[in-house]
């Protein structure tokens, strides 16, 4: 059984991976070590987690406009998220995802409750869909 929800295409592409949820907004700038993908912002829900290869689910972006370059840099270094799912993607995350070719979908309003850490999902950002993959 698999369950698919529809959102809106922000940056095209298809990726599969394990979900990492942040119920809080994310500022990529100052928050993620681009060499490792480790989340370094203090006192954040994701502090100490690694976002590399994960399908990162968070409500929206916050903070510095340099976030776009950080997302691009993570993608170039191979330490970035496999895909991004947002409630609402603002310009800074959208620009980073488009340039870094990170599949990104928004408009999934209950995403941070719908998905849990460790869920396996397939993000078809070109179609704007997210499918929860069943456990074997």
């Amino acid at each position: 059984m698999s369950e698919t929800v529809e959102g809106r295409t922000i940056a095209e592409g298809v990726a599969e991976g394990e979900v990492l949820v942040s119920p809080e907004p994310i500022s990529f700038y100052g928050a993620v070590d681009t060499d490792t993908g480790e989340f370094i912002e203090a006192d954040h829900h994701l502090t100490g987690e690694t976002i590399a290869g994960k399908v990162l689910v968070f409500p929206k972006g916050k903070g510095s406009t340099v976030g776009s370059y950080v997302i691009y840099g993570l993608a170039q270094e191979g330490t970035g998220p496999a895909a991004i799912i947002n409630h609402e993607t603002e310009t800074i995350v959208a620009t980073g995802a488009i340039l870094g070719e990170v599949p990104c979908v928004d408009g999934i309003e209950d995403a941070v409750e719908r998905f849990e850490d460790g869920d396996r999902v397939r993000v078809d950002a070109t179609e704007g869909t997210v499918t929860l993959l069943a456990d074997d």
Binding site: S64, T65, V66, Y69, V70, Y72, G73, Q76, E77
Partner: peptide, 16 residues
């Protein structure tokens, strides 16, 4: 234009 510090954008930013 933002993202001007080498610390912020690193080698991928320089090359971009």
């Amino acid at each position: 234009a933002s993202g001007i510090s080498y610390k912020s954008i690193g080698d991928p930013g320089v090359e971009f």
